[in-house]
């Protein structure tokens, strides 16, 4: 069902390009997560906080990034998922999700993961340890 075991160091899992970020995306995430910090949904509040406009929840981006691994849950699971929030994601940004295999040790696959915006800047980056059964 997957080619995970055939991956070599330096290979990537299929990257995913998200559609432009919409306000509705962030309203939905606010509702589903319970994070109602208004800088993510209300223009005026974002401006009062010194931002040019509303920004995505960091956890929205982190949540999205994990879906690169969703096809693999029959053979393993995400044991560790570590992210540093580096740049803001604004409305209409086009985010690309990436995972590159950097190391394999027995049942553990170590990936560098990142969400990159349309200018090639990292919004978030970090590491996933995918552990196979």
């Amino acid at each position: 069902m997957t080619t995970l075991t055939e991956l070599h160091i330096g290979d990537s899992l299929h990257s995913i390009e998200l559609g432009p970020v919409t306000r509705l995306d962030l309203i939905k995430y606010a509702g589903a997560s319970g994070d109602f910090n208004p800088i993510h949904t209300i223009d005026e509040e974002a401006k009062n906080a010194g931002l040019p406009g509303i920004i995505a929840h960091g956890m929205w981006t982190m949540g999205n990034l994990a879906k690169i691994f969703s096809n693999l849950y029959e053979i393993g699971y995400i044991e560790e998922y570590k992210i540093r929030f580096k740049g803001m994601v604004f409305l209409n940004d086009v985010i690309t999700l990436q995972a590159d295999l950097k190391e394999k040790k027995e049942d553990k696959y170590y990936f560098n993961v990142a969400a990159i915006n349309q200018s090639g800047k990292e919004a978030i980056s970090g590491e996933v340890i995918f552990r196979t059964y």
């Binding site: 800088i39 699971y77 998922y81 970090g126």
Partner: peptide
């Protein structure tokens, strides 16, 4: 407060889903 905090890093560790 619910406003004004910056989320710097996040790390999950799972023993199972």
């Amino acid at each position: 407060p619910n406003k004004g905090l910056i989320h710097g890093e996040q790390k999950y560790h799972y023993n199972r889903p």
